[in-house]
Design a protein around this nucleic acid. Structure first.
Lengths: 221, 221
DNA sequence: TCAGAAGTGGAACTGCCGTTCCGTATCATA
DNA sequence: TATGATACGGAACGGCAGTTCCACTTCTGA
């Protein structure tokens, strides 16, 4: 989380009041919970209720709903980045790959709003931009290393992998709240499909994150 | 399509006017277009505009937005069922399987609203229920036959297959409007993962449509 | 302890969008 | 062609949810 700066303009030369900061934290936590459960249609009033504050307090800290969503997304990106960096510590590139990409759909599933946001918006909040870049670098590393070690086939790119596992999250979400068994079934199947062996030829070229971004921008027209 | 009965109560002993019926068709077509592009957030007024009628006409034929959505979904189910039955004609069970399940994500992608509806609603419109059952029977046939012929592994069920390819549709939707190449890449990868060979063991049991339905109902609590 | 700055709650406001309503236009029947 | 039933368009309505506002409370620093 990046709670050091609030969206409300604090006059210079004075600290934000401690109760105010505590409330901000509560709102952020409540919002994460609500958006995870309800997706982006989760309501401000519900966030306020769960945080134990009034809607006014929510809206002072996050002047618009979009701002609130962005704050939540940023904190989610941070935790995902943490998992990626942790996986990169693993000496075995293939195992590192599996470790992270088994966790990825669970992450998506826990934060349904993330997927929706990615699907609907052209670009992410500027505040999350550096984070996001660090994350794509980490994912690219994971994939490239796994390929170098022969754990997965060479004709897929980092963004291919990322999209496929996002798809798994979506698929299991269709079946109901949280379905860890299904998720793992599908992750296994896809991992099997990613092994080198006598894999069938793929059309197109491996997709990296730069290309993926271009596609999304083109879509925005 | 099932245009024979309108939602508006036609007094007995009299035919619906032909212009009225034509308008109803136009509305349905426009709605299919709009919901495909915009998802369920597509607006009634836009549907009316594209159909070249007033909002009043839309709302007389489909008294509520939900009714309109259901009508569109029903017609989509029909066309999907048509494709499944066509694939079943194919003498080679493995090829039949591929033919249909390559087409499935494209179908999902063309009708984004379908996925959203499936994700959000507990159950489908009652009018679509028989259709839906016929469809699940056809899909089950395709999968069982493909397994019997050795084309795909035995530890997956028809609903597993269905969910996985819905996931592909979602994944490619994340990349932008329509991405046929990506879709095919991912379908190929998953098909590779479904082949028997030395596949890794899957947790859980093959999922059929009856179980899937139970899961969804449990989710509704 | 006290003054004033900072923050709070929630009622009121606002805009969006589905739905209703009714004066008018179109079609079917004789 | 005449007549009335049927259908039409689109303005007006109503409810929902995000945002604003301000009288009131809480905190901070002296």
């Amino acid at each position: 989380m990046l709670p050091l700066e609030s969206d409300i303009q604090t006059p210079p030369g004075r600290q934000q009041r401690v109760d105010a900061r505590r409330n901000r934290e509560r709102v952020l936590a409540a919002a994460e919970e609500v958006f995870a459960q309800e997706g982006l249609k989760g309501q401000i009033e519900e966030v306020a209720r769960r945080a134990g504050v009034g809607v006014g307090t929510v809206c002072r800290n996050f002047p618009t709903k979009q701002a609130l969503v962005e704050a939540v997304l940023t904190s989610m990106y941070e935790s995902l980045l943490g998992q990626a960096l942790e996986a990169l510590e693993h000496p075995d590139a293939g195992a590192a790959f599996e470790q992270f990409f088994v966790a990825l759909p669970e992450f998506h599933a826990r934060h349904r709003a993330l997927g929706e946001q990615m699907a609907n918006e052209l670009e992410l909040p500027t505040s999350a931009q550096p984070l996001r870049e660090e994350l794509t670098r980490a994912l690219t590393d994971l994939v490239v290393r796994a390929q170098a070690s022969g754990a997965i086939r060479n004709d897929i790119g980092p963004a291919d992998v990322s999209l496929l596992f996002a798809g798994v999250a979506h698929a299991t979400a269709l079946a109901g709240e949280v379905q860890p068994v299904l998720r793992e079934r599908y992750v296994r199947i896809i991992l099997d499909g990613m092994r080198p062996r006598e894999a069938s030829a793929l059309p197109g070229r491996p997709l990296d994150f730069a290309q993926l971004r271009k596609m999304k921008q083109r879509r925005a027209k």
